[in-house]
Simulated scan of single mutants.
Amino acid sequence: MPTGKRRASTILAAFEKAQSELLGKAVVLTDGKAGTVERVWLDELHGLRISIKGHDGKWPVSTIKIAQE
């Protein structure tokens, strides 16, 4: 497999794993917002981003302070 395709496959596999681990999980963000992860995006400028049910906006996944086990 060419290098570009291999990298793309690795990125997509990691995204799918993160998505399955985060969707529906209760989280608290570093700014105090809390709720359930509603959606996960792969943003070309900022990396992995999430939306929280009941809150407008998209936050970097790095802002998760506490996640449901």
Rank of each mutant, 00 (worst) to 15 (best):
A18K: 03
I52E: 02
P60F: 04
K65T: 07
E44F: 11
S20H: 11
L22T: 00
I52Y: 02
T63G: 09
Q19K: 15
L45F: 09
S20D: 13
T36R: 00
L45Y: 13
A13L: 12
L42A: 04
G57N: 07
E44W: 08
L48R: 03
P2V: 07
G57W: 07
S9M: 15
S9K: 15
K58P: 02
D31Y: 07
L29M: 11
S62G: 07
Q19S: 05
E69Q: 10
L22Y: 03
K5W: 04
G57A: 08
Q68Y: 03
S9G: 09
I50Q: 00
L45D: 14
L45I: 05
A26Q: 14
L23A: 01
R7P: 09
R6E: 13
K5L: 10
S20N: 15
T3F: 14
H55G: 08
L42Y: 13
R7N: 15
T30D: 15
K5Q: 08
L22P: 01
A26H: 09
K65N: 11
V27K: 01
D43F: 11
F15Q: 05
K65L: 14
T63C: 10
L12M: 14
V28G: 01
L45S: 13
K58H: 08
I66V: 13
T36N: 01
H55C: 08
A8W: 07
M1I: 09
A14V: 13
V28R: 10
A8F: 11
V28Q: 04
G47S: 05
E38P: 02
K25R: 15
L12Y: 07
W59E: 01
R7K: 15
A8R: 13
R6I: 09
K65A: 12
L48W: 03
R6M: 12
K17C: 06
S9E: 15
K25S: 00
V61Q: 04
V28E: 06
I64T: 06
V40I: 10
I50Y: 06
P2C: 10
R7G: 09
H55K: 10
A34F: 11
P60N: 12
K5C: 07
G35A: 08
G57E: 06
H55D: 10
E69N: 11
V37T: 00
T3V: 14
L22N: 02
R39M: 12
L42D: 03
S20G: 09
K17H: 12
D31I: 06
P60V: 06
V37L: 00
P2F: 08
L22Q: 00
L23W: 04
V27I: 14
I11M: 04
T36E: 02
S51K: 05
I50D: 02
H46V: 07
R49C: 11
V37Y: 01
A14H: 14
G57Q: 06
I50N: 02
L48H: 05
V61N: 00
H55P: 05
T3H: 12
T36G: 00
K65V: 04
R39H: 13
R49S: 12
L12I: 10
P2N: 15
A34Y: 11
I52W: 01
S20I: 01
Q68S: 13
S62A: 08
S20C: 05
H55S: 12
L29K: 05
S20L: 04
V61P: 01
R6A: 13
